[in-house]
């Protein structure tokens, strides 16, 4: 523990206050619940976090771009419906366990396609992403209902619903997939040209345009990435449930945005990173898990999360107001 208190760590915590919060709730629940500090529970937290977490990775990109995507919950449901339904199509009947493969691929493609539609509309029409994806949120949910006819689909292939029970070493496979995606998106954002341009587009759109970054296609790619991640999240969620319900993923967009904002990403764009977002989703995950273990009714989580979100905004404002130079506007 000694190295924790050396300066670089403290300085790092100052820049990523959400991790300080994660640490505090972690210690708090470790002390106050007997069941919290337990390897099996940690696995639970990671699995529970992965659903929101995967989407939050994509949302980080989209929000750094200065956009937002409200349609992710619906996309998740659509992908889950495809993943569960397609494997029972007659044409794959003889494929055995391989029938899962086209189903999952199609589901992921559907997710990418939904993102592409959003991105393309934002690019070509110049309508604000908030409005475009608000429309898509209703519309894609409509697609889910059209496709499912308001029915839930159940996975007939047990290999599908068993998937989520696998572990690789100590890590449940769902957690592993999530962590791999965290690494991949972190790499994308911090190491690649596309990732760096993501900051440029969100930080100073005009400068990015002038520097020859093709802002439209760039934003479309990020919408496709979040579509893919939402679909992946939907597939994984449906393996956990062994089913896909038409109302799956409702309100997820709110949780995801909460997590990303907690992680320090700015709504106005140009600022944020995956480390912060990971902290944001873990904070929510640990809070929900811990309060569940302490048998606090789930209702309180809503109140606490809402309050934390507003508090973070307030503190951020308090500590980062140097721009107006004392002008009383």
């Amino acid at each position: 523990m000694r190295h924790l208190f050396q300066n670089p760590v403290l300085r790092w915590l100052m820049r990523n206050p959400i991790w300080g919060f994660v640490l505090i709730v972690f210690i708090f629940f470790s002390l106050s619940s007997d069941h919290f500090f337990d390897a099996r529970n940690f696995q639970n937290i990671l699995v529970q976090t992965s659903t929101i977490g995967l989407i939050a990775l994509g949302m980080t990109l989209v929000m750094i771009n200065g956009n937002i995507d409200l349609s992710v919950g619906a996309t998740l449901a659509l992908a889950a419906a495809f993943a569960v339904d397609v494997q029972s199509w007659a044409m794959f009947a003889t494929w055995g366990n391989w029938q899962i493969l086209p189903a999952v691929c199609l589901a992921l493609l559907v997710g990418i396609a939904m993102g592409a539609i959003n991105g393309f509309i934002v690019w070509k029409t110049g309508v604000d992403a908030f409005i475009v994806t608000l429309g898509a949120m209703l519309g894609i949910r409509g697609l889910v209902f059209v496709y499912t006819g308001e029915q839930s689909f159940y996975a007939m292939n047990f290999a599908y619903s068993d998937f989520s029970a696998f572990s690789v070493g100590p890590l449940p496979v769902l957690a592993l997939i999530f962590l791999l995606c965290v690494l991949a998106v972190h790499w994308l954002l911090s190491r690649t040209v596309h990732g760096r341009n993501t900051y440029a587009v969100g930080g100073n759109r005009e400068a990015a345009v002038n520097a020859g970054i093709r802002v439209g296609p760039h934003m479309m790619i990020n919408f496709m990435i979040i579509g893919f991640l939402a679909a992946l999240s939907g597939v994984l969620l449906s393996t956990q449930m062994g089913a896909a319900t038409p109302n799956l993923g409702r309100d997820y967009e709110l949780w995801v945005i909460t997590a990303v904002v907690l992680g320090g990403t700015k709504l106005t764009g140009g600022k944020g990173d995956i480390i912060g977002t990971l902290g944001g989703v873990l904070a929510i995950g640990i809070l929900r898990n811990g309060m569940n273990l302490m048998q606090v009714p789930a209702f309180y989580v809503y109140v606490i999360l809402g309050s934390i979100l507003i508090a973070v905004l307030f503190l951020d404002k308090r500590f980062n107001t140097s721009t107006d130079g004392g002008l009383r506007l």
Binding site: Y199, A200, A208, N210, I213, G270, K271
Partner: peptide, 15 residues
């Protein structure tokens, strides 16, 4: 016309 959250190098070679 700089991007504030990026490094000087990234700004110099923006795009």
């Amino acid at each position: 016309s700089l991007v504030p959250e990026m490094s000087a190098a990234e700004n110099i070679y923006l795009g």
